[in-house]
Design a protein around this nucleic acid. Structure first.
Lengths: 358, 358
DNA sequence: CTGAAAGCGCTTACAG
DNA sequence: CTGAAAGCGCTTACAG
């Protein structure tokens, strides 16, 4: 029987059923491993599936069983302007987390539906909303949406935010910023004996940054160090932002503290660069630390002392939390992952003495 | 009327229709801008949609109109081992292309469903097949599948490969490798007067690499240069592979040609590094060139002369081709994008003389 | 173990 | 301009 293939070329489960001489229910069962089909039934179906190269339609499947097996991931697209080599790292940063999400997702048979958002795109909530319609849940990278925006989304679909704050409607996964900053401050003050500290902040609207800044102030006071603060210390997570802070501080004739903690490695990159240009030596004159441990951190001059966040685990954990919410309607509201102090030379340690603090 | 919300929380178009006091057909029409609904109808629907934060279900929509508005993207996950700083770039490389795909996709209202594949994953075809079921078309990065595997996939869904070769069933988008190599060879031989050339190859199974190698041999002969070839020149696109080639060549006591073209920038990175360790000066003793123009290329010592591929455009173009196939059943089988010679110093030019060749 | 049938949430001719 | 109804391709009770 030489029937012409359907014009659209869209093979359905009916085609498989016909070729195998069984009902579509049987086809569906063997494809999904449900029930206990007879060996012969199973064989005939599998043969037909193979012969036709049949793949079930994901949309129909999703509609039928209420699960798309897709997780939406939204992140900010940078402008693409870079100040220094290594700046592209932030890119990688997001990517490593996404990779972690993907690893977690694959374990559960989910795929990632990704969508980036530009910094000055409008109708962001609408765009993400449309994404939500195509996914079972959403993972939002840092600084994507206001609490209100998140609440609206969480109304439609489970939402996990990264490095944010949990809201009544959404769950959050982040690293232990407090512990990271605490370890850094203690290392600088107790082990190196530095008495004055500064903190070049990240974007003012970043929860991570606020937490770090607050931990910095609290901990510095706790160990009796002087701190230098104020508007002049406002950075924005970029190398350019870090360089700017140093330049304005110096231009204003202010004396730099003995050690400067930076909101992230990118910032530290800019700070070290600007300092070098002004002839200020790191770490002899001023010790510098970062946060994140991006790949270039170890290659800076001097190698950067920083805090390593388990980014891939962060992504995988975000997925797991989302998944438990999707499948069981339960999920931890606030998850905090441990970080690790990475002591290199920019703090004043020498390469031989540099090792992990406790 | 205080009706309890549906337990599942799944809002449907019926809920919107009821609240707005219209039929579901009307809701659908205003949501999709079809027909000419009365202003009042439109208002009532929009109000209801907003009040409920309603987002139509993507699966149902896709099933109904035969379009998921999703493009599947598949790429290789690297092992994560790195030899030198900058090696992570290959990562970025894929990412830049994906970003291009995304830009193209967004223009058409599509999202990206991404799935990476490990180098030693099995049942790759099945995995990609499942992806195909969730997408309207597939874009495959380099070296994902055999021609037979691609053919099977192309049977289910339109397929565009990147940097491969088009098959009867799939379309391909690549850069003009021949022109890039030709420009490089001419620059080295004609402008610098080098008479002997070598080519450190990429993976043997990469179409891009084969094209480059072939162009290298053809063009070198055309301009009358001597070439050094053979198994000893086999690299694998990684810095480690490039370094290996140099080390074995030197260990075997072979005289290096005056100029060495590398299959890509990563390879050049390793070659330059290995050469430096053996005290061979670049470009004074041996000139080196790359291919790709990854971000670190300009920061190498010496800055790398290479060929820039328009990666983001490559991704965007791949999407457009796929889209034209999805929407109009037509699509160019083989698309070649122009490249640009980027002359820096590793070829022997000085920073003042370095400018783009023709 | 297997098949007939209902239903998932939309879109879109088809009448009115 | 608008509504009732069919249909997209699956899955899964429900009978047999």
């Amino acid at each position: 029987m030489a029937e012409p293939k359907k014009a659209k070329g869209t093979l359905t489960i009916y085609d498989v059923a016909k070729l195998a001489g069984v009902s579509i229910a049987s086809v569906s069962r063997v494809l999904n491993g449900q029930g206990t089909p007879r060996a012969e039934t199973r064989d005939r179906v599998m043969r037909a599936v193979r012969e036709l190269s049949f793949v079930p339609d994901g949309a129909a499947r999703a509609l039928s069983n209420g699960l798309k097996e897709v997780v939406g991931v939204v992140f900010r697209r940078e402008n693409g302007e870079t100040y220094l080599e290594g700046e592209d790292e932030s890119f990688l940063f997001i990517d490593v987390i996404n990779r972690g999400i993907e690893v977690g997702a694959r374990r559960r048979g989910f795929d990632l539906l990704i969508s980036s958002v530009g910094f000055n795109d409008d109708n962001v909530v609408e765009r993400i909303g449309a994404l939500a319609g195509k996914a079972d849940g959403l993972i939002l990278h840092d600084r994507m949406l206001s609490a209100a925006g998140i609440a609206r989304l969480a109304d439609m679909v489970p939402v996990v935010t990264l490095a944010g704050t949990s809201t009544p409607a959404s769950m959050n996964v982040r690293c232990d910023n407090e512990a990271g900053i605490r370890d850094l401050v203690r290392h600088l003050v107790i082990e190196h004996g530095y008495r004055s500290l500064g903190y070049v902040s990240g974007r003012a609207d970043s929860p991570d940054n606020r937490t770090r800044q607050h931990a910095f102030e609290t901990e510095a006071v706790a160990v009796g160090a002087e701190i230098d603060t104020g508007q002049a210390w406002q950075g924005n997570y970029s190398a350019a932002g870090g360089a700017n802070v140093v330049e304005s501080l110096l231009a204003a004739g202010r004396k730099l503290p003995r050690a400067i903690l930076c909101a992230n490695d990118q910032t530290a990159l800019g700070v070290i660069h600007a300092l070098a240009q002004r002839g200020v030596r790191v770490p002899q004159d001023v010790a510098i630390t970062g946060f994140d441990d991006v790949p270039v951190a170890r290659h800076l001059h001097p190698p950067l002392t920083t805090v390593r966040q388990p980014m891939q685990e962060l992504g995988a954990m975000a997925f797991e939390i989302l998944y438990s919410r999707i499948s069981a309607a339960a999920g931890k509201a606030d998850t905090v992952l441990p970080v690790e102090l990475v002591v290199r030379e920019s703090c004043g340690c020498t390469s031989s003495s540099a090792k992990d603090g406790a």
